[in-house]
Design a protein around this nucleic acid. Structure first.
Lengths: 237, 237
DNA sequence: GTCTATACCTTGATAGAC
DNA sequence: GTCTATCAAGGTATAGAC
């Protein structure tokens, strides 16, 4: 559990108090393990070492706690990804950054990413927060769409249908938050490379006659991906 | 909603009453949309057009209802898959049957498959039912393991790590239950072919110098996959 | 086999003292 | 900023009539 101070929010400079980080950690861990609906406000308070009433000093209610966790993670991913793609035009290089960046994020921020990928359905669909989060996710996926379409029209990629290819690759990457643990078969940087290679192969990426492999492109280094406030550091198994 | 009688359980011959099918349908739809924990027994009763007390005549409790839905679907998948692989030795043909069979099942039994893929965590981990379901899932995944390892050792497949390759491909296939709907970009048979092609490409399947494509192998026809009792028929969008 | 009625527990959230 | 104490609502499950 982190005891660092002066952590900053992804979208601003507001400091996050130590108690607030402990609440976030408790919520992230429990939402990831049992799901939002199966987690009680008392479970969160107990894991954070405070009472339920204290939670309401930091967050308006349980739903806002969930929204905050998802938003911080999604905004961080969107900003890092947009920055990594700046000035990069070749579709195979863009796809490699998209895949390795997504895998890196789901390895570093494993639990909060899992919550973001599975608990949108817990939010009231007409709440403004829901719209905002769906918009952020759509903005992110648009980067994938554009890359896949460009690659296909340039003859660098070859696949039958953009939407199902995109969703298949996205699901494959986000799915690692359900089974990856530090200290397993592969370290995270190797996993980024491996999945990039699988993805490039899946769309049959090539330059001229030569298939493009992960070793020939630049990847996102997971060591450069920061943990969001509250995301626990997992021990190697 | 199906009104057929004489439906049979996957693992036996016991008839399923009309009311029981309506309960199953209500539970499958609500568990898939909101999750098990967020679904109340009153919600299920209301959707099935009965009272909560009547549910307890057909199922011992809410957990048993979930277990039953997951078990029937997993057993059906395991049996169909084992049958389709009988006598098939070539790894690329086995992988094609595994992928197309899994995609077909997740298209036909979309909602119950989604429940099976996401709600195991709702069960008490030391309950016998939990152990049984995990065992069934492990039996299924062992078919994938064996196929991938055989293909790699025969030089037909090429990938960096068996476990992450297997989990990546599995997640890609099971993920379609989160976004596929009848009447979309591709019909289900085309989706089976497309994902088989993505999977064969991802492991760089080849015979001699030639890449193996989905068009060169036999696939599972989704029209041969039966709906489990209670799985709703979805309208084309 | 389904109903009405209800028991009993846990839930998210709040009031007000310190 | 955190606590104790508490509330109203909703949760699962059951008893017993028909």
């Amino acid at each position: 559990m982190s005891t660092a101070t002066n952590l900053s929010r992804a979208a601003g400079d507001a400091a996050v108090s130590d108690t607030e980080v402990r609440i976030r950690t408790a919520a992230i861990v429990l939402f990831a393990e049992r799901g939002y609906a199966a987690t009680g406000i008392r479970d969160i308070a107990g894991a954070a070492g405070i009472t339920t009433a204290a939670i309401y000093h930091h967050f308006a209610n349980k739903e806002e706690l969930l929204v905050d966790i998802i938003r911080v993670g999604q905004q961080a991913l969107n900003e890092r990804t947009a920055r990594s793609l700046e000035g990069v035009e070749r579709p195979e290089q863009r796809l490699a950054l998209l895949i390795s960046g997504l895998v890196a994020t789901h390895g570093i921020n494993r639990m909060s990413a899992l919550v973001g990928d599975t608990e949108l359905r817990a939010l009231t669909p007409d709440a403004p927060a829901y719209r905002e989060l769906v918009q952020l996710r759509d903005d992110y996926e648009a980067l994938w769409s554009r890359t896949l379409r460009d690659g296909a029209s340039e003859g660098v990629f070859e696949f039958a249908a953009e939407r199902s290819t995109r969703l298949g690759l996205l699901t494959m990457c986000t799915g690692i938050s359900r089974w990856y643990r530090p200290g397993g078969e592969l370290d995270l940087a190797s996993l980024c490379a491996h999945f990039t290679d699988l993805g490039l192969a899946a769309v049959r990426a090539r330059r001229g006659r030569r298939p493009v492999r992960a070793a020939a492109v630049t990847l996102v280094d997971p060591a450069t991906v920061p943990r969001i406030p509250g995301e626990p550091e997992e021990e190697a198994a």
